[in-house]
Design a protein around this nucleic acid. Sequence first.
DNA 1: TTTTTTTTAGGACAATCATCCTAAACGACG
DNA 2: CGTCGTTTAGGATGATTGTCCTAAAAAAAA
Lengths: 193, 193
Amino acid sequence: MTQLGTRDRIVAAADDLFYRQGFEATSFADIAAAVKISRGNFYYHFKTKDEILDAVIEKRFADRETMLAGWEVEGKTPQDRIESFINILIKNQSKIMLYGCPVGTLSSELVKLDHSAKEGANSILTLFRTWLARQFSAAGCMELSDQYAMHVLARSQGVATLASAFKDEGFVNAEVQLVTRWVQEKISSHASE
Amino acid sequence: MTQLGTRDRIVAAADDLFYRQGFEATSFADIAAAVKISRGNFYYHFKTKDEILDAVIEKRFADRETMLAGWEVEGKTPQDRIESFINILIKNQSKIMLYGCPVGTLSSELVKLDHSAKEGANSILTLFRTWLARQFSAAGCMELSDQYAMHVLARSQGVATLASAFKDEGFVNAEVQLVTRWVQEKISSHASE
DNA sequence: TTTTTTTTAGGACAATCATCCTAAACGACG
DNA sequence: CGTCGTTTAGGATGATTGTCCTAAAAAAAA
């Protein structure tokens, strides 16, 4: 049971708050209060708000990387792995219905703020994109792999957006099933060629 | 050539700034500067920032209503009308690649801020949803109409989100074509029953 | 122990925010 | 012309923001 360092606790709290409230709407004081440390201590670890954002993005990137790597181990077929990805929408359903997709909403926000960290946020989407494309590629989808990856990513983002707006559980379940079936069709059609 | 009133000019400027920068990131001063009036004059027309937001949402709602009504006139078949909807992604492509979908991003932001106006923002999405469902219904899709409407809406939102992140024109065009084809298939399959 | 480095606390700072106020300018109408 | 309601300008306010500083506490090294 290793005690988490102060820096890590700050990043974890910021990660959570940026997700639930957004980056712009979260203040130094908010994070400090969540971690229960003084603003001064805060400044010792992070000189600017942008530095925290960078750290949060790094953490999110690393978290997703290990998540994807895990599926690469447990998922036997590329199709299984892609389905694991789609099923995030089910696994995190309650949170997504409250705050949307952490990756997509942060990316949207930073694009609007024209923030220098927007490329970093987008890199997580790119991580998903290339990972999905690799799975489709392994499933024999050839030069269409990247297009399929973008398609799955887009539909996931769309479902997350409407889930947070309408908070309709049935809708999320139905769409997940549709995307899953779409993937099955594409992969099997490529296999039969 | 009627001179637009000050109030309308404020709402128009706020509409634009909320879209490009987001609601939270846009200040009274920003809007006042865009309209070239003093903050005092501003306060004469709107007592709080929330009042401007309400006005902007009302305007956006009305704008979309007339847009949909226009398609109802010029579009001969329900399918034509639904395609008009999907083609917003093409028509506003350059703006969407810069700032995403005005309706979806505002909704996402207000949900995170847990802002009292979030229901108003969502009502624009509901406007789209019911309009699309009505078209599917007219095309004979019966009890599946609402589900289809949500599907088209979700995919449009997803495309807009990824468009602003990746700024890939080809991706938008390809996805628009896919959604259009999906609509065609669904409608024709229902017509043949 | 003493010394040195790392970590923490909390106040001070200027800037910016939404909001509010007063008074001047304007326009319609007598 | 003068009067009155509408519209405008711009300063004042108090709260909050991100940032910075200094000094005390804690930990590590000597």
